[in-house]
Each structure stands twice: as structure tokens, then as C-alpha cells.
Amino acid sequence: MKTLFISLKIFLFFTILTGIIYPLIVTGIVQLAFPAKANGSLVIINNQIKGSELIGQKFDSLIYFTSRPSSVSYNPLPSGGSNLGLTSSKLKHSVDSLRCGFIGLNQLDSLSVVPAEMVFASASGLDPHISPQAAYLQVKRIVKARNLNPGQKSQLEKIINSSVQYPQYGLLGESCINVLSLNLELDRIFNTNSHLN
């Protein structure tokens, strides 16, 4: 019995300490130090939330760069991947059709190398990034859809170049581009109505 009482009391003590005080202290500190990040890195334009810098969005419109395939269609409730193994015929078919889709959409040569992340679904289903190559391959289609002149086309290429996130501290991770930020930048520079579909 004595053990049970000790156990209940110390459990209560640790619940208050590590279950309430600890998260509250951390919340207090980070809400002061990095409020934007601790609240989801939201992108707010004209007082309207447009998304989170960290959470990918689905882009179907021809005027936007497309995101990676997602097995949850960028619906974060809940996040997740396809969980298909490499010997799954479902995965094989999906990769083949995504490859054809990407080539068709961007009017590429049928032998073009489509970057792997554009035919394979991400782990979270919310991957906000694509590789720089995947962005460059979409330029031709976006120029056409947006009716851009050659001057604007080179401006677009500059935007892509300046959007590349290189490995952090020169070493960690892969080079990638945040699709939502890139598309927002397109809208800003080329004055597009964001609901033009």
C-alpha cells in the first residue's frame, strides 16, 4: 500500500512538472522568442492567411508550379505517405502515370528525365518543396499560361534562382525550392489574381 501511495504522489508530481509546467515554460519562451515560427510559420497577406510556409499546397492551375504528388492530397488531417513497397504494382502504375502527366503538362520531350520527387509521393504528404530541376522543367508551361514575354521569362528564371534553398550551413540536407513561396512570388511580380484558375 505504501508503495502505491508513493507511486501515485510521485506520478502526480511528475505529471504536473513534465506534463504541465514543462510545456508551458517552453511555450512561454518560444512565444516570446520566435512567435511566428511557434505558431506555424503562417503566410499572411493583406490580413489573410494564405497558408503555412512549411505545409505544402496542391497546385492544379497551369499558372503555378506544381507540388509533389501527395497520398493525402495535401489534406493535413491526417498526414502520411502511400506506404507502398517497391514491388507494389500500384506504385509502379502510379509512377508511370505521374511521369506521363508531368511530361504532358509541361510539354516536355517524351524522353525527358522527370525528377524523382515529382513521381514519388512524399512521406508526410505535405512536403512543401521540390527540387530546382523540377521547377526549371515547368518554366515553359508557366510562361505560356501566363502569357509572359521573353523579358518576363528571364525574370521568372531569376525568381527561381533566388528561391533555391541550398543545403543548410552549406552541408545539411538537399537543395530545394519552396513551392508556395515561389508561387506567391510569381503572383506578386506578375500581378496575378490569386483565384485565376
Partner: peptide
Amino acid sequence: AGQGVVQNFKSYETFHTLEGATQVI
């Protein structure tokens, strides 16, 4: 949290994406 991991007690955030779809994060 400094890198972007969320730490708050807010409700799930609902908004319209750039293409007008509803996303709840």
C-alpha cells in the same frame, strides 16, 4: 521551435489556399 516546430495551444488553423481550396492545419 526556433527552426519552425509548432508550440502553441491554438485551434487548428483553417484557411483558403492560393488556389482557393480549404486547408486545415
